[in-house]
Amino acid sequence: MTSNTERTKLFHALHQPGPLTLPNAWDVASALIVEAAGATAVATTSAGVAWSLGAPDGDRLERDLAVELVARIAKAVKVPVTADIESGFGENAGEVAETVRAIVAAGASGVNIEDGHGSSVRDAQEQKERLAAAREAAPDLFINARIDVYLRGVGDPADRLQLALDRAKTYLEAGASGIFVPGVTDLATVRELANGIDAPLNVLAGPGAPAVGELASAGAARISVGTALPSAAYAVAQKVAVELLSKGTYGSAEEGLSYGELNALFNQ
């Protein structure tokens, strides 16, 4: 796959019937590792990207830095790339459209755009305008509209399913290609979401969550793991550093990839 148009068409197709399983990457090396492991697409994690570039997660990273990293990843891998662009790196719909145009020019085939804002979520109609602007800016892009009502504990727990379904309907009307509902992995709720949403459903999995096959059987078309990979990698880095500085030994580094293995990823 060399044409971005071809990669974008492929990325849409990977959601049907699914499941599209995405180990999220945060830099070029991790993207190459994910691709070499057999991933059919590479997804970025906004938190991992922000951390690697010296910023906290939560719309604190400069847009240009995020776009540049996406361009580097898209150039390095052969599979489609989908970029987590947080809430769009923009105060208004017009700025979200600018971000999306830049991300497409960088080589991305998809984006995540979240409705989380502060400790809660944006007004659904305001988010609809932001998503509509993104769609107008990129007619072919896979737009994964993220709904944060579960993740941020919005409202009465008994009302969250219907709130998520209502928002999903609104966001699909704005042109979203898929719906992402992080914070939910129990199979009954995943099944209700999948049955009530007329688009591919993305769930966020990780330690303690049902296996990919179980989530897929419940209706999830796309399964991603967010910060799982960078968190694990940084935990190993911390362990190696603490052992070296406290004991003067190196055992924690024994399972690391070799210099040759890593270097070879960049010579393909």
Results as ranks from 00 to 15, higher is better:
S120F: 10
D57S: 07
G175I: 06
N4H: 15
V28R: 05
V100C: 05
R160C: 01
D64F: 08
V149H: 00
P17G: 09
G208P: 10
A25Y: 06
E173L: 12
G18C: 10
D27Q: 14
T189N: 09
R146W: 08
N195A: 15
G38R: 04
A97C: 11
Y259D: 13
A241V: 10
A37F: 11
S177K: 04
A55I: 09
G153A: 06
P230Q: 08
L262S: 08
L187D: 02
D115K: 02
H117S: 10
E254F: 09
S3K: 11
A132L: 03
A97G: 07
A221V: 11
V236T: 13
D57R: 13
N112Y: 05
A133N: 01
E126Y: 01
P182I: 05
R130I: 05
V104D: 04
S231L: 14
A97Q: 04
G175L: 08
G116T: 03
V181T: 02
A209F: 13
A145F: 01
A235V: 09
P19L: 01
K128A: 12
A102R: 15
V49N: 05
E255L: 13
A235H: 12
A158L: 07
A168H: 07
T44I: 06
E6A: 15
I85S: 08
K128N: 04
S246Q: 15
P56G: 05
Q125Y: 06
G196F: 09
V181I: 11
D166R: 04
N4A: 14
S258K: 08
P80K: 01
V154T: 06
N112F: 07
L187V: 09
V34M: 06
R191C: 06
A235T: 09
E254G: 13
Q268D: 13
V154M: 08
R72D: 14
G58C: 09
G196P: 04
L163N: 03
A211S: 06
